[in-house]
Amino acid sequence: MKILVTGASGNVGKYVVKSLLQMGLPTVAAGTNIKRLKTEFGGKVDFVMLDFQDQHTFSEALKGINRVFLMRPPHLGKPEDLYPFIDAMKKENIQMVCFLSLMGVESNPLPPHHKIEKYIEHVGLPFAHLRPGFFMQNLSGIHSKEIQEKNEIFVPAGNSRTSFIDAEDIGLSAATLLQQYNQYQNTTHTITGSESLSYYEIAEILSQVSGRTIKYVKPSILKYRNHYIQQRNIPKAYVHVTVALYLMTRLGTAKHITDDFFRLTNQQPRTFREFAQSNQDIFERVNT
């Protein structure tokens, strides 16, 4: 029997696959772009087409599978988009679904992850909900454009603090839960980094690492929304989910630090400075 990793070419999914392979576990990488998956992993894993909006892909994707890493694709803003696949997993008697959720989502019904968690529990699937803090890769990914082009962190988080975690650490956590699925059935895990930083402190670290002045400009929610939809052409559904998250962040929901990562892996999480140093090339200035 094998472990299915959805979103296998994404920020977290690729690290789940790599950690599972390091553990010697047979793994199937799933996604809608098989060519991209083969480029990422070569012949190290099996590949399968999986489109949450096409139920005809479910049967083949779940063939010979007994555990699943499940993540919501960013472009699917409605929790109901994942319900048919969750139903399919239930019919196949999946032994464990590790769902990539969000920190604090158990008391925050706004993000779609809240209802997805509840639905997994409702249908009776054995689960391990993984609730990470904000990804460090948010800054090297979606938010890197403003850093590269304007020396600005354009995030509507106000004066809040965030306990960032590296996606590689999230991947290791998920792989551990899937490896030891009997021990972790029907559990929840909030994983964070070891420090809670303001975006002003993040800007200072990036300035020190890059050798140039990077500022946190603290945009309003409305200004951020308009910029990402109108100037960046990011889909509205994705932007609205991030707006909900940053609204909660302003209320202090992202600042808490836990030791769940250490308890799962017996390792210390990566610091943001370590992450910035190893990804220094991503944060280099780009002239427009």
Rank of each mutant, 00 (worst) to 15 (best):
S210N: 15
A203T: 01
I191M: 09
V209W: 01
N159W: 06
I165R: 08
R273K: 15
H56N: 14
Q267C: 04
Q148G: 09
V5Y: 03
A8F: 02
G64P: 10
S210H: 06
E284M: 14
I205C: 03
L110W: 14
D51K: 00
E92F: 02
R36F: 03
F283Y: 15
Y184S: 00
M71S: 10
A254W: 12
E92K: 12
M248A: 15
M89P: 08
P73K: 02
I34S: 01
P73G: 08
E195A: 04
I282F: 05
D51T: 01
V12Y: 01
D54H: 00
P112Y: 08
V241S: 09
L25N: 07
K2L: 01
K35D: 14
F283S: 05
F164W: 15
R285S: 13
I94D: 03
F134C: 13
H143M: 15
V68E: 09
N151A: 15
L20V: 05
R263K: 11
D281R: 12
T176M: 11
D81W: 06
S160H: 09
S140P: 13
L206T: 02
Q53V: 04
S160M: 10
V12N: 01
V155W: 08
Y216T: 03
S220A: 05
V217L: 01
R161H: 11
A8C: 01
